[in-house]
Every structure is written in structure tokens, then in C-alpha cells.
Design a protein around this nucleic acid. Structure first.
Lengths: 413, 413
DNA sequence: TTAATTAGTATTGTAATCGAACAAATTGGA
DNA sequence: TCCAATTTGTTCGATTACAATACTAATTAA
């Protein structure tokens, strides 16, 4: 009676539709998927048996389909969050974080720690991640099925296609995917992802408004380095070696605000945190933290205003380049330096429009929502997305069917 | 017995596999598709009945699968070219062209004419295209089934999502997809495509080597303007309004080789034909055509060498920007100015590597193959691709099944 | 000549889906 | 209050695409 270890195509599509909509009746789901009600009924029954979906007990809320409608009301079906869990982690320059989301995409547990990734070894990073993962697992319901760990790092895949470079962490040829399993003591699929890509997913995966669903989106992540994540047609544009979006390195001026002997004038040397503060000091400013800098901006300190306007001009130039090449519908500014953006939004948009041909559509520019969770959350979302799209690495099968056959990536408790 | 008007999924996959391989036995096709021989046999029979495939009479050539192999030899099945035809056209600044490919992707007819698109009206363009299309259809076998016309233009979709801007043609808010049907006197799906995108498809669609199949590729089309086409995972990256890849407009320097009051220093003002010749004259050169310029390069004329090296430096800078953002595996230089590239290939690669971080993979840089056919050929290939991937706008059904039901996009003769 | 191997086909079984019919639950009138 | 209209969910064949198996056909190697 029961067969394939992974989701069949329409089961995956049903879960995706339920994820997007939150909850649907069988009939509404049938319309969504283009199947008949009878087929959908059987489909839903399978998902219920597998503990991947459940019927919502309170049929009270009605704003799902249409209000005050004739006919027998449907029974709302929604994803059962406890059906599966996905782990995301982030190795940053100053801190490290991890979190778990459930099958509904809700964050169920998070943990973080100060960690000087730059001064430490990849082995230490693996151990730190392992500790955070253990901490998180303890907060999840007993018997929770873990479906993978995705770690986002500020780096890119090396030419060998296996190891990672993360100059900003001092990593050269590191294979975290090999280090982690040893430190974890759990068998779990391990993936790595670029941090800006992860943030891009975090900002775009959970789409509320319908018109934003298929929208192309560019996320610009500004810390000390500057990274970019490109989401097109709902998927990441990763490039040939999963290293697309290294926008911090595009040559854009002759000389940046901070000195760089190797590649002077690249975007990072104008937009990164160090660059901003170098410029700020150059025009007479004194603050050394982003918080102090924004407070100086709030009270209109001339040096801060000047530095932020200079920053805005180069940001606009970078965004113009990116817009010409990618034509995103939306650009999201993320990272700790992004808090400067609201002070100069008008300037950036004005500069940007002078760079583009008339008639060329201007992207919407927005601030990030995910905040510090972004990198780890996006990493976890990527696993969620893979599982819901039927990726065989993340077989979604629930408890009732579980008895028939052993499932490897389960956390025994 | 007969059912859906379009291709069923595995029929489409089978045609795609046959297209890539050229010809396959049923058994080889079964391995390719991951189906059983029995299923594939039925699948092939359907394609034969529909006149979309045919058995190759000479079983003589063997280099399809493996040589000197034991066992009963298979009967090679290949796509029946006459099963369907696709039209592609190109409206350039100086000329206009059109061609027809058959279901195997082979060019079966072409026609072109001098045409000053810049000085003329969109209505005239539509009429000129219509004339060329009539000329082409006359060369095709009687009863040929036409499956659409795709016109590539050096322009981009306007903000309204319907009309096109092509400043270089003097087009502002032109809806060629509405003008064309009236001029054509045939009912035919009409599509428009950016010319650089089309060239990108022309350069990448027909992949011979296996390792290049899924490769990300960037095509840089250098005429007077500079356009880019981005192919990722076998599909075009079109951006939000189908206008991605307008790389000629990225701000890259302070001032170009040619004066531009509106947006000085954008890539086009360094790399376009006018820019190259402006630089050439500036350093004392006299030639006025690309042919003369390359001849000057061949005999080592100092002015030509200087101009080409300056051109190479800015090309490298542009490619560095594009490589950081997109990380293509391959970059193809196309357009009439591209013939300069072989003279400075070494310089471009050397410059490029200085712009990129160490460890970052360098893309392969190649010259275009498609030549002047590129824009129209790519446009036609896009229709071919849509049809083979089961797009309902291009229903592939052959003659035997055709009797049961009227098919609109057929050319009555 | 025979064994091994591979290609193609005929037959049968099965999972996914559709279509039609029907019972259940609701709204809106009469 | 009752009944028509409407929508939901389910049941039960029929259909379809595919797999599994067994068989025949055509070739090479021994």
C-alpha cells in the first residue's frame, strides 16, 4: 500500500499551496492545484495519515476564501508544524547563531553566542555550531524529526567545487560539511550556503502579497563586506560555482574610502562598515558604532550627514549597475549598516534614476525585515523549500507511515 | 483514443532528449528518460504516429551510444524535422532578417533586407518583417505547420508591461505584437524578445558537449550599443520586466570615449562601435569600418593597437563586474565589434584576473559562433524550446492526429 | 553451433487521477 | 418553517500512464 520514500509530486504541490495560503479547505485546495475534489480528498487523507497536515478544529475564521458564501462550509486543512523540523545556522564575523523552524516555517527555537569567527579555526566553528544545535534540539518537542542543517557563511565555494573560501573569516579551503557531522553526533544532511543568498531567501520566501510571489528580488547585505543575493522566479541565482552575488568586489571607483592594496575601488571599500567610518572620520566624525552614528544622523551632525550622503551616492551607483544587469523588481537593503539607508533613501533614489535610461522601470527599494535572524532563517527556509518541492534528500514522511520502514534523519530521544 | 491538445510530459521529455542527442534507439531513450523499454516503445509509437519523430533508415552510423557492442542493434529514432516550423526575426539598426527552423532546430529558410530601422516607423518594420516572412514561407515544404513568430529587437519592455522602448531604433511605446498580426495576414502567436537575450539563446541552446549543458553563460553583444543575455540553468534570466542585461548602461567610468550628456561613463561609451572609433581617431587612427580596423590591427598599426588595448581594459572591467554579480561559467563575446576581441584576448584575461579575488573561478571567454544569424536564430530557438517543453501556446501534434481536430496555427496552402 | 547480450514488443498489473453520483451542511427565500 | 440552491466532502467505476514480466529478434563472442 505504501511505497515511495519521498513525496509524490502532487503531495508536494499540496503542501506548498497549504504553506502559501496558511489553510485551505479540500475544495479550495483542489481549485488551487487544478485537481478534482475526489483526488484532492485522497491526497489530503494521505497527508493527514502522514502527520504532515491536520484539520483546523475552529472553523470559525473565514477570511480564507470568500466571506458570507452559500453552501456547505469546508473543513480547513493546514500544515502540521510538528511534522518536520529544519535547522539553520550562521557563522558571522562576530557571532554565531542557529535556529529551528517547523514544517509551517515558524521559528520554534533559536540560540546564539558571541564568537570571533575571524580569530578562530573552522574546527572551533563546527563545535560552536554543534553546541547551539544541541541547545536548540532540547527545546523542540520530543521525537522531533530533523530534516537537515544548513549553515550560511560569508564565503563562496572554491574552484574545486567542494571546499569554501571565506577570507573575512580567515577560511581558505575549508570543508565545513565534513567537519560538522563529526562534531554533531547526529546523522543529518549538512548543506552550506552563502550568507547573502540566505538573507535573500529569508526576505522573499514567505510571501504574503500575491503580486510579490514571482517577483525578482535582489538583497544587498552590508556588513564589513558587501554581499548580494539574487532571487529570480522564486529560486536563487547561484551562478556556476554557487558564488554569484559577490557584489562587494565589483570595481566601481578608482579608490575607496578605505585603502585596499589588492583591489582598490571595489564596492566594499565604499559601502562596508569600515569604509563608512573611514569616510566619517575623514570629514571630522568621531562615533565608532553604528548606533552612535545613527544618533549623530538623527541630530543632524554635519560630519555624519556628509558621510552618509557620500555613502548614498556610491550605493546608488552600485544599485544602478545591479539594476541594469538584473532588473530586479525589488531591492532589499540588509545587514547592520542598512540602518543608515532610511536617512538617505531620497538621495539614493534620486541618484539612481539619473543613472538609468528614461522609461526603465525603477526597482522598489526596501529595508530588511528579518534582521539578525536573516542568515540562519534563510538557510533553514532553503531546506524547507527543498523538502516541500519533493527533494529526495529530505523525505517527508510522518509518524503513522514511519513504522513500516526506518527513516534515517530522525533524532532518537 | 486521442486526448490532450499538447504534449504529455514524457513526450516532451522524449523530444528534448532526441533533440539533444540527435538520434537514439528506443532502449537508449528509455535509459535517458528513466523509463522502461516497454513504456518508451509506446511513447515513441505515439511520436511516430504524430509525425514528430521518424526511424532513421540507415542504421549504419554507430557513434551514438557505444561502438562494437554485443547484442541486437537498435533502430535509431530521430526528430522528424517537418513536424513543425518556428519563425525568428530580427529588427536591427541597419538591417532586418528572418529565418525559419524546423523541429530539429535546423535553419530551413532565411531572408534579410537592408532596413534603416532608426529612420523608419514601427509600422514599416512590421511590413518589412511581413514581407520577409512571406518570402520564407514560400521556401518551406507545402503544408508546413508554423508554430509562432518571435521577433528580437534591441530594446526593452516598457513600464506598462505591454509596449517596447528601443531608443536606438527611435521606438518609444511601440507594440509590435499588435502591429504584426495585421501585416502578416496569418494567425500566428507573436512574441518579442530582446536581441542580446536571443543571441544568448542562439549561442547556448544547441549544446553539443555534455559538460556545458547546465552551464551558466553570459553573452555580451557589442554593436553600437552593448547588450547582455544571461542564461542560467538552461533558461534566460529576464528580470522583472524582461529587461535584464542592459549592461551597456552600467556606470563604469567618469567619462567614456564618446560624449554622452545624459549618462556619461556608461559601459557603452567605452565599448560600442562609435566609442572604439572615437578612441581610435583620438590616438591618430583613420579607418572607419571594423574590417579596416582589424586589418590595421593585423599589420600592427600603433593607433589600432593602442585603441584596442584601451578597449580591452574597459571590457575587462565590465566583465569583472558581471562576473562578480553573476559568476557565469562561460562568457561569449558577440556582435560586429567582437572581432576585435581575439587581438586582445590575453590582455582582457590578464586584466580580469586582477579585478577578482584570488580563488574566484575565472569564466571561460569565447567568441560567438552564430554570427549575423544570432538574434533571429535565438528568437526561433526560444519558440522551439517552448514547444519542446510542452508550452500550451505551441501545441505539437502531427498530421495523423491532425485530422481529428482543427489546429489554428497552420499555414493553409 | 551455442551462449551471452541487447533491442523491441505483447501482456498484465497498479497507482493516480477523473467523472459522475450522492449525502451533508450551509444560505436565502417563500 | 420548509424547500430550493449551492457548496463540500466522499464513494465508486473508468481511464491513463507507467512498471514488471515474459517473450521474440538480432547481433557478438566463444
Amino acid at each position: 500500500m505504501l511505497i515511495s520514500t519521498d513525496l509524490r509530486p502532487n503531495e508536494a504541490r499540496a503542501l506548498e499551496a497549504l504553506f502559501r495560503a496558511g489553510a485551505l479547505s479540500r475544495a479550495a485546495l483542489a481549485r488551487e492545484l487544478g485537481l478534482t475534489r475526489s483526488t484532492t480528498g485522497a491526497l489530503v487523507q494521505n497527508l493527514l495519515d502522514a502527520c504532515l497536515a491536520k484539520e483546523r478544529p475552529d472553523a470559525s475564521d473565514g477570511p480564507t476564501d470568500s466571506p458570507t458564501r452559500v453552501g456547505r462550509p469546508g473543513i480547513l486543512v493546514e500544515i502540521d508544524g510538528d511534522g518536520a523540523f529544519f535547522l539553520g545556522a550562521y557563522v558571522g564575523v562576530n557571532w554565531i547563531g542557529a535556529l529551528a523552524i517547523d514544517l509551517t516555517g515558524t521559528v520554534r527555537a533559536r540560540a546564539s553566542a558571541d564568537f570571533t569567527g575571524a580569530g578562530s579555526s573552522p574546527e572551533k566553528s563546527a563545535e560552536a555550531i554543534s553546541d547551539l544545535v544541541a541547545e536548540i534540539i532540547a527545546k523542540l518537542p520530543p521525537g522531533a524529526r530533523l530534516n537537515g542543517l544548513n549553515v550560511s557563511v560569508p564565503g563562496f565555494l572554491a574552484d574545486d567545487g567542494v571546499t569554501y573560501h571565506a577570507p573575512i573569516l580567515g577560511w581558505h579551503g575549508v570543508n565545513l560539511a565534513e567537519l560538522l557531522p563529526a562534531a554533531l553526533h547526529i546523522e543529518l544532511p549538512i548543506l552550506l550556503e552563502n550568507d547573502a543568498n540566505a538573507v535573500a531567501v529569508a526576505e522573499t520566501y514567505r510571501v504574503r502579497r500575491r503580486e510579490e510571489a514571482g517577483e525578482d528580488c535582489l538583497v544587498v547585505l552590508i556588513e564589513n563586506g558587501v554581499g548580494g543575493g539574487i532571487v529570480s522566479a522564486g529560486g536563487l541565482h547561484r551562478g556556476q560555482r554557487l558564488g554569484a552575488g559577490e557584489i562587494g568586489h565589483i570595481p566601481i571607483g578608482d579608490e575607496g574610502f578605505v585603502y585596499d592594496a589588492q583591489r582598490p575601488g571595489r564596492l566594499e571599500t565604499f559601502l562596508g562598515k569600515d569604509a563608512l567610518f573611514a569616510r566619517y572620520r575623514h570629514v571630522g566624525g568621531h562615533a565608532t558604532t553604528i548606533d552612535d552614528f545613527t544618533r549623530a544622523l538623527e541630530r543632524g551632525e554635519p560630519a555624519a550627514v556628509t558621510a552618509s550622503r557620500d555613502w548614498a551616492r556610491w550605493l546608488a551607483r552600485g544599485l544602478a549597475t545591479l539594476t541594469c544587469i538584473l532588473q530586479p523588481g525589488r531591492i532589499i537593503i540588509a545587514g547592520s549598516v542598512s540602518v543608515v539607508y532610511p536617512f538617505v533613501a531620497g538621495h539614493v533614489e534620486a541618484y539612481l534614476s539619473t543613472y538609468l535610461i528614461e522609461g526603465y522601470p525603477l526597482p522598489k527599494i526596501e529595508m530588511s525585515n528579518a534582521g539578525a535572524d536573516g542568515p540562519a532563517l534563510g538557510a533553514a527556509y532553503l531546506l524547507h523549500q527543498s523538502a516541500l518541492s519533493g527533494d529526495i534528500r529530505f523525505p517527508l514522511r510522518g509518524r503513522k507511515r514511519l513504522e513500516d520502514r526506518p527513516l534515517s534523519p530522525t533524532w532518537p530521544r
